[in-house]
Amino acid sequence: MGLSPEEWTIIALSLKIGVIAVLAMLPVAFAIAWLLARGRFPGKLLLDTLVHLPLVVPPVVTGWLLLILFGMNGPVGRWLNTWFGITLLFRWTGAALAAAIMALPLMVRAMRLSIGAIDRRLEEAASTLGASRLRIFFTISVPLALPGIVAGAMLGFARSIGEFGATITFVSDIPGETRTLPIAIYAALQMPGNEDAVTRLALLSVGLSLGALLLSEWLVRRSGGGRDGL
């Protein structure tokens, strides 16, 4: 089936927002996952709860919070605008932010599990061989946590391209700027006699998610499987 220019725009935008959201959030999510898996500090429970908030709070509330924080008159929004001339409201960057926040808990959970599963005795062995903490981190810890990092990134991506509630609350529905697949489906549903468009978009959405899932399976196998499946 041929895609219309509007549909291409919607897909490209969805992919762009998903990829940027995950890439930007990856280091943050890994740092938080590391802290939660390894750290012992006061306020750990608070951080844990805070990270999981987007998972349990209705997305519309997350969007509203983003609006308050990053809106024109919000503390962060005003600061970004004054110092960097950056506005997130009603922009695709805002949609990426909303997607990233919604993806964060899933990414952290997957990474935390795999960091927790790293055999610390291998890190000990590396230290007796003269490796610095930094070298151990990059040559032992990160590679051993790689399957979880990949899984977290892919989960986050799937969540990002499916994001609806927080996005539409924060950046509204602007064709070409913030109209992602789920928002386009919702918009199409609002108009009567549009069943065909809805069906096409819904199928696209399913296809995209399936593709992401298959890719993630494949990547996880590649990053962890090659040596174990001998």
């Binding site: 055999d119 005795r121 291998l122 000990e124 062995a125 590396a126 007796t128 061989l129 032992i140 590679p143 051993l144 040596r227 174990d228």
Partner: peptide
Amino acid sequence: CGYVFQQARLFPH
């Protein structure tokens, strides 16, 4: 100190 552990602890990756 070159340490040979009870289980070899080779890096699996």
